[in-house]
Write a protein that binds this DNA or RNA. Structure first.
Lengths: 173, 173
DNA sequence: CGTCCGCTTGACTCAGATCAAACTTGGTGG
DNA sequence: CCACCAAGTTTGATCTGAGTCAAGCGGACG
């Protein structure tokens, strides 16, 4: 899955649900490559509620945008028990600067994340649940199994109830 | 504005409103650095309506995520007459692969775009205009001059009227 | 077998989208 | 200099999508 980091000195760590990989304003010391489980990147608002910035699962690099930054600008919390390959930030930096092929792979990852996030932002700027769901489905993605509908609701910026209703409306039409 | 590309062979082109810089599925031949004017990156949905993926203005790289991609996955259309520095894609690629400092600058640029877009998605997932405006202002950005309020409304995913009302509410309180 | 969680559906309410009309401002041309 | 036009702003009236609260259902799992 992460062939392209296999040559980097790394440690494989287990994290339990609820653990933090890092907090906002922590200095950036490591890069995290998610092998299994789910880790969310989120920012807490003043009123206590949280906004999810990234959902990293198997194959994702967590907070890839922080490679050349001094400190994190958000928290990373484990959503479901995760296996994570942890690599020193400076190791990755050095490799980036010395190995053009690695730099290219890294840039590809950043580019993919840009496309994904832009897409999410544009879905969120649509007005109705129906439009958002259409746009979300336009990707060629199929509707996932029942247990994950709530996640989609969150992803397209609505409540589970509103999504259930829209789906039910489509079922009967 | 684009010191970091000044050493690349480029041509400065003028584009009129309504012109296309490229279409979806076109092979990627050039990178576009916007010097003035506005260019939108958009995807047409199956029903014909369009979703805006990026608003590039002075200082933006258009479709930076496509540097290593075979073809574009969206259209680029000029919104208001624009001056664009056009550089051969392979020139940028080569420079990226040969000059680590350039690669780092490019990666920084991608990372900044990720953060910006994540932040936009974060704002759009808030429920009320008041919350969105607060979040938007949280950046330390000041409210711009009157002529640009409509753009903010679009940016935070609401209508001009709704934003005007919210602003008027704050003025009298 | 009971508990938990996600799904379903109903009822109520409200923020904001939409439509509409008036006012401000800046620019253009006579 | 002023008439005129376009675009942005302000404010009102109306309507609706969806958020919220609530009650019931069904499958998974200890």
């Amino acid at each position: 899955m992460f062939d392209w980091i296999s040559s980097l000195r790394q440690s494989i760590l287990q994290f339990a649900e609820g653990q933090y990989l890092f907090h906002r304003d922590d200095p950036v010391r490591n890069m995290h490559f998610i092998q299994s489980g789910h880790v969310f990147l989120l920012r807490r608002k003043s009123n206590g509620s949280a906004v999810i910035l990234q959902r990293a699962s198997a194959g994702s690099v967590l907070a890839e945008a922080s490679l050349f930054m001094a400190s994190y600008h958000c928290d990373a919390i484990v959503q479901s028990a995760a296996t994570v390959a942890v690599v020193g930030r400076d190791v990755v930096q050095q490799r980036f600067l010395q190995d053009p092929a690695f730099a290219k792979t890294w840039a590809d990852h950043l580019a993919r994340e840009i496309r994904r996030t832009r897409r999410r932002a544009e879905i969120l700027s649509l007005r109705t649940v129906a439009e958002r769901l259409d746009a979300w489905l336009d990707d060629g993605v199929d509707l996932p199994a029942k247990g994950q509908w709530r996640d989609i609701a969150e992803e397209i910026g609505t409540t589970p109830e509103a999504l259930y209703r829209e789906l039910s409306r489509r079922r009967t039409r």
